[in-house]
Design a binder for these strands. Structure first.
Length: 816
RNA sequence: GCGAGAGUGGCGGAACGGCAGACGCGCCGGACUUAGGAUCCGGUGCCCGAAAGGGCGUGGGGGUUCAACUCCCCCCUCUCGCACCA
């Protein structure tokens, strides 16, 4: 009896595969195979691999191995997203240098990946914290700087007091720091931004036809970009003549404006309050709001605000309406000032009721009693007819919106406009462990790019990286002092580092030509390998990483460096691995780690457990899947049976009987379909059926060699060690199963010769009859009525009609 | 509130509009065993029935159809994302 001993066979195959260079991609331009770029989201090196990695990479590796067996030249690289805050936090907590901590973890993860047998091309391995990598991150920064896409601006920023750093909008979750949960404060700092807003429309448009992604990811990106159509309209401050533009999605309600509101941060506010004699009331509000953490500001739902004592003139009817300043208006969206239409906007309505401002109805729902601004209980935001809005009375909303917008343009009082929720990408970080921003500040020359030949601007080693207000680099005694590259005068380096999302926005380009030192990537190689054939990773990157990478790719396209605008046409998200219905976490004490499973039961078991648990994109509740951790997992037992059945098939010299041959061909067809759609769990179930039928055939004295020759290669992407062992040792092949062609099937043999005909009476199954697969309608009908059971069910009722779908189904419909 | 997705045995999950519950876990019974956390065989949606067979079943309610887990309408529940975005 062939025994299955994963702990003996797996490490040996790891070594042999690597010696054979099994997973190395060919850069030969004449390689006749179609290329396939299988990309997994690269890991962050915090500790050893966790269950999420185990699941994602089990799927990604299956995709890569399957593609290779289907005849592709596969690029399946690995690297580490190695800059970032946790390395510094570990340094502060444990007194180990960020670099040391990071590389220790990388080595640990690399060992674990090897043990798992991931088919990575290790020759292309990269770490974003290596100078030869971040040299090109800095180079890309300079390219954006040259094109005006990287710029510095003083702006209110999210500030995490615990981590002592600025955070991107995307890193603020419900008003708190994404990493540590501390409420975020506001500060005004001069920061570097990438002008991603310039690409908002293209980022939106290209999702329509250039990407085939999970619907929810597309939706999340759409919502994040947040395109709104409407109009920009300019109001005039009566007392000063200041012209203040506002954005509205409802220009059809312009005639219902009864007040006007500025954001707290709006630059006109202090002057207007001074003029209006309200500064004494306004100033406390401004100060309070500015010092309030964003978290609490968002929670405040009271319609607080203060009148400014000045008035805005409505350009459509010349009316003077009072101006307010209120926190519910955001400086970051639109223009930082709004027209307020309480009758048709709930927020404006609440504010108006609070402050005694009149509510004027200008949209009347059709067929209902006239709305009364003084009595209505809430704003009416629905459709209706415009009223009190000469010259537009009687126009139907929402169709009227575009008409009014066009009219505004013709009248010179405004224009149709589009507004986006997307903000520019704040990339400055006042931290040590990141790529330094390659800019020198010179008193005479201003912001000067570090010349390309001086890249990388390397991180110094001897740094005090405890957090504190400014970048650790700023506190280094000598690092920042430098001669201005432009005039040679004394100057200082920019002491901020880049957001790690910058590092991860282009790593997939670098994989194509990892050693290239004349640029971030060799265009020929990128042209040959990209775009990525299949991207695999967690949905937690649905917005940030994917959006930024798409932005970078479009910039590179505009620079003429790449010939495509979308890096990842196809994306699949694995689900999360949870435990007992909740995310695994230290505080819950419910963390399960993959490596102990690999050590005890084998990497193939770990992979099969992940892939067999359910659809790849669904969450896996490990508590429900794994059962007793000391009991042999079901998939391990199955692999053991496969070892036995394959060995027996080899030992048997009798020929196979036809039913098994046919099942084998059917299984190849079905498993191929499943693999093409990443339906690993159903693929595995079909392999289980095949192996079971092989066992039955052998026990009945038939052969199963042909079935084994198909079963083992189909197992290879899913359980690569077991498949390799069986392929080379038991089946005696010289070459690796992972270089074997995917099995093919004969459509004639894949067809069943006899099928089960289901016979229904009035839609209820009454019998099942075996018929020839090519049985025609008459034959099916005949077989159906021949059934005793069917005749009894019909009884003495008359037959009204008989639906026949040969060779699967007959439905006898009776008169009732 | 807005948007997306999902509700099927004890559990994970299958199912081109055509046999609901494939495959697996668990459980029950049996075999082999000093043992079983190993292996093998059989059973396992619920109800009636000794069996043959029958009835009921895919969150709830309607509808389309010879036929609905699947398509349409309404409702309920859950998960995720966004959330004062003008």
């Amino acid at each position: 009896m062939r025994r299955y001993e994963p702990s003996e066979i797996e490490p040996a195959w790891v070594a042999r595969w690597e010696a054979e260079g099994l997973s190395e991609a060919s850069d030969d331009p004449d390689d006749p195979r179609p290329r396939f770029y299988a990309l997994d989201m690269f890991p962050y090196p915090s500790g050893d691999l966790h269950m999420g990695h185990a699941e994602a990479f089990s799927g990604g590796d299956a995709v890569a191995r399957y593609a290779a067996m289907r005849g592709h030249n596969v690029l399946h690289p690995i690297g580490w997203d190695a800059f970032g805050l946790p390395a510094e936090n570990a340094a502060i907590k444990h007194g180990v240098a960020p670099r040391e901590w990071t590389y220790l973890n990388i080595e640990q993860q690399a060992r674990s990946f090897r043990r798992m047998g991931m088919s990575f091309d290790w020759t292309r391995r990269l770490h974003t914290c290596d100078p030869e990598y971040y040299r090109w991150t800095q180079w890309l920064f300079l390219k954006l700087f040259e094109r005006g896409l990287a710029f510095r601006r003083e702006s209110p920023v999210n500030w995490c007091p615990k981590d002592a750093t600025v955070l991107a909008n995307e890193q603020v979750v419900q008003g708190a720091c994404e990493r540590c949960g501390t409420p975020v404060e506001r500060r005004d700092l001069t920061q570097w931004f990438f002008r991603i807003t310039e690409y908002a429309q293209r980022l939106l448009d290209d999702m329509d036809d250039l990407v085939d992604w999970p619907e929810r990811v597309v939706t999340m990106q759409r919502n994040w970009i947040g395109r709104s159509e409407g109009a920009e309209v300019t109001f005039t401050i009566d007392e000063t003549g200041d012209e203040v533009p506002i954005f509205t999605t409802r220009p059809d309600t312009l005639w219902g404006v009864s007040f006007f509101v500025f954001a707290v941060e709006h630059p006109l506010v202090p002057r207007l309050a001074e003029l209006g004699g309200t500064w004494d009331l306004v100033r406390p509000l401004l100060e309070r709001v500015r010092s309030t953490p964003l978290a609490q500001r968002e929670e405040a739902d009271t319609k607080e605000g203060v009148a400014l004592g000045v008035h805005a003139v409505n350009p459509v009817n010349g009316e003077r309406v009072p101006c307010f300043v209120a926190p519910y208006v955001l400086m970051e969206y639109g223009t930082g000032a709004i027209m307020a239409v309480p009758a048709h906007d709930q927020r404006d309505f609440d504010f108006a009721r609070q402050h005694g401002v009149p509510v004027r109805v200008v949209i009347q729902p059709e067929g209902e009693a006239p709305l009364d601004g003084d009595a209505m209980p809430e704003a009416y935001a629905g459709e209706g007819l415009m009223v009190n809005s000469a010259p537009f009375d009687g126009e139907r909303t929402p169709q009227s919106i575009a008409k009014v917008a066009a009219w505004l343009r013709d009248q010179g009082r405004g224009a149709p406009a589009v507004s986006y929720r997307l903000r520019d990408w704040l990339i400055s970080r006042q931290r040590y462990w990141g790529a330094p921003i390659p800019i020198v500040h010179c008193l005479d020359c201003g912001e000067v790019a570090v010349p390309e030949e001086q890249l990388p601007v390397e991180l110094p080693e001897d740094v005090d990286f405890t957090p504190g207000g400014e970048s650790p680099l700023a506190r280094h005694p000598t690092w920042k002092s430098v001669a201005c590259p432009n005039c040679g005068g004394p100057a200082t380096r920019d002491t901020d580092t880049m957001d790690t999302f910058v590092d991860s926005s282009w790593y997939f380009f670098r994989y194509c030509s990892p050693g290239f030192d004349a640029g971030a990537f060799r265009p020929d190689d990128v042209h040959r390998w990209m775009p990525v054939s299949q991207y695999t990773g967690g949905v937690e990157h649905a917005i940030l990483h994917l959006l930024y990478s798409r932005f970078f790719t479009k910039v590179l396209f505009d620079m003429g460096l790449v010939g495509f605008t979308e890096p990842f046409p196809r994306l699949m998200n694995q689900g999360q691995v949870i435990y007992g219905g909740a995310a695994m976490s230290k505080s819950k004490g419910n963390i399960v780690e993959p490596m102990p499973i690999v050590e005890r039961w084998g990497a193939d078991t770990m992979r099969l457990q992940m892939l067999f648990a359910g659809p790849f994109e669904d969450d896996i509740d490990w508590k429900l899947i794994a059962g007793d951790p000391d009991k042999r997992p079901g998939v391990t037992s199955w692999l053991g049976r496969v070892f036995g059945v394959v060995a027996d098939a080899v030992a048997s010299d009798v020929t196979e009987h036809e039913p098994l041959v046919r099942l084998t061909h059917r299984t190849v067809r079905a498993v191929t379909e499943d693999m093409d759609r990443f339906r690993f769990h159903t693929a595995i179930s079909k392999l289980m059926v095949l192996s079971k039928e092989m066992r039955s055939a052998l026990d009945a004295g038939h052969g199963a060699r042909g079935a084994a020759e198909a079963l083992v290669p189909m197992l290879a992407p899913l359980a690569p060690f077991a498949a390799e062992e069986l392929w080379r040792v038991d089946l005696g092949h010289a070459e690796s199963v992972h270089r074997a062609p995917w099995p093919s099937f004969d459509p004639g043999l894949a067809r069943q010769e006899r099928v089960v005909l289901v016979v229904q009476v009035d839609g209820k199954v009454r019998d099942r009859v075996e018929v020839e697969a090519d049985a025609d309608e008459a034959a099916c009908r005949e077989a159906a009525v021949a059934s005793e059971n069917v005749r009894r069910s019909i009884g003495d009722r008359a037959i009204r009609s008989v639906v026949v779908r040969p060779p699967r189904l007959v439905n006898v419909v009776t008169e009732r």
